[in-house]
């Protein structure tokens, strides 16, 4: 996962460390606290799809934010 602000990388983290079943369980538990009911299996399905899509679309930006001042933040999986 890479987060860039105005093209400068500010956060770099191996995606493989967050796209696994263990993390899926953690995400599922935390989503439950927010009222979003997803089982560990369902969360794993999400993660599996993210990995599959990422393999075929290397330039995929999950989130792009542009402020009115022109600052750009990009989150890439």
């Amino acid at each position: 996962m890479k987060i860039t602000i105005n093209t400068r990388t500010v956060f770099l983290f191996p995606t493989g460390l967050i796209t696994n079943r263990f993390t899926a369980g953690i995400i599922s538990r935390n989503l439950k606290k927010e009222g979003v009911r997803l089982t560990k299996k369902q969360t794993s399905l999400f993660i599996k799809e993210i990995i599959r899509y990422k393999k075929n679309h290397a330039d995929w930006n999950l989130v792009e934010f542009e402020s009115k001042n022109g600052d750009m933040v990009e989150v890439k999986i």
Binding site: W60, N61, L62, V63, E64, F65, E66
Partner: peptide, 10 residues
């Protein structure tokens, strides 16, 4: 106020 956020979901 002018900020733009884009979320790209497969």
């Amino acid at each position: 106020k002018g900020d733009v956020a884009r979320v790209n979901l497969p």
